[in-house]
């Protein structure tokens, strides 16, 4: 099945999704270790204006991935990396599954992208 000439300049949907996922996993799994440890805007304001001590521990504070560190993994780099990759994949499955369940099905979807339709259309006999 040959793609039309104009599609050669286009990145396929699959390639885009794979590249995007690789970037997300690198960000969550590797780059996250280098994130700033300073309090965020809200936390800083709460401290500054004096209501930070009203914060309560989350009921999930003892869960295995709480605070983006993996329980039982001492290496900090690995600990945050595992938590980040796990969280990213869980979100991908949940949000992707939800989107697939909600999507419109049938020919209406295919109609919107003539290029993809051409690419997937069977060769003319």
């Amino acid at each position: 099945m040959s793609a039309p000439a104009q599609d050669r300049t286009r990145v396929s949907t699959r390639a885009l999704l794979v590249a995007g996922l690789v970037v997300a996993l690198l960000v969550a799994g590797v780059a996250s270790y280098y994130a700033s440890a300073h309090p965020d805007g809200l936390e800083h304001v709460a401290e500054q204006t004096g209501f930070l001590d009203t914060a309560e521990d989350s009921p999930t504070a003892d869960s295995p991935l709480a605070d983006y560190s993996t329980k039982g993994v001492d290496d900090e780099r690995l600990s945050v990396g595992i938590a980040g990759v796990t969280g990213t994949l869980v979100v991908l499955v949940l949000a992707g599954g939800l989107a697939l369940a909600l999507r419109r099905r049938g020919p209406a979807g295919a109609e919107e992208d003539p290029a993809d339709e051409r690419a997937h259309a069977p060769e003319r006999a």
Binding site: L92, A95, G96, L102, G109
Partner: peptide, 17 residues
């Protein structure tokens, strides 16, 4: 639709990351 649903999953994963 069939094309944008997987992208939605990726967008959520990226926002988490």
């Amino acid at each position: 639709d069939d094309r944008t649903a997987p992208l939605a999953g990726l967008v959520a994963a990226f926002v988490f990351a």
